[in-house]
Amino acid sequence: MDALVVKDLYKAYGNDVAVGGVSFDVKDGEIFGLIGPNGAGKTTTLRVISTLLTVTSGELTVYGKSVTEEPNEVRKIISYLPEDAGAYKNLTGRQYLEFIAGFFTSGSTKKEMVDRGVGIANLGERIDSKVDTYSKGMMRRLLIARAIMTQPKLAILDEVTSGLDVINATEIRGIIKDLSKEGTSVLLSSHNMFEVEYLCDRVALIDKGKIVADGAPDELKKEYSANNIEEVFIKVVRG
């Protein structure tokens, strides 16, 4: 079964059309990248899939469950990490993970889930420090841990390494690769074309609210006679 199927998704705010008829699918266990310029509709698409925004028209299913008809069921199997997200400042990293885990499980399995999160975050003793004292890299690690520890079937990650230094970004890419190997499907958006090429099994290029090209990175490079996805992107966007 496909992890995600998006059919002709339209999302409008009054007369403003944010996403104008987007269709794509994410296979089970696949890392799928959504790339595009600022304002192309990536974040809106991810928010709609994550049940945060309503759908103007179109059909969306996550592992066969309708985003519009069964949002609560969808929320049980997805995990969404917004761009530049933070955590509750007065909680420690561990308390934050416990808070999130409390919505998925309880008792000893909750402890297992939190321990898994603590391991992914790999913050050492700082896991018991207030979130308020974390650097951007530490915060991102904590949030990745939060998103992954619940073992979602589909992880939706928006600009996951945005603003991070090379070391933190590399570590997080490694975590995402491992996640996919463990069977979680991943839908991510990014500006970083090299990151997308490195991580993704398939990508879709979105511009002005529409998918303008999609396929495996190697196929796209071949199709557009480009050396990398960045060149593909420029050729597609500039026509």
């Binding site: 929320r75 995990s79 917004p82 997200a85 933070g86 509750y88 400042k89 919505f103």
Partner: peptide, 18 residues
Amino acid sequence: GQEKENKTLETLLTLPVN
């Protein structure tokens, strides 16, 4: 206001809770 600024509200709204 803080929840929106930190995007913790977005996270909360995607959790399996009514």
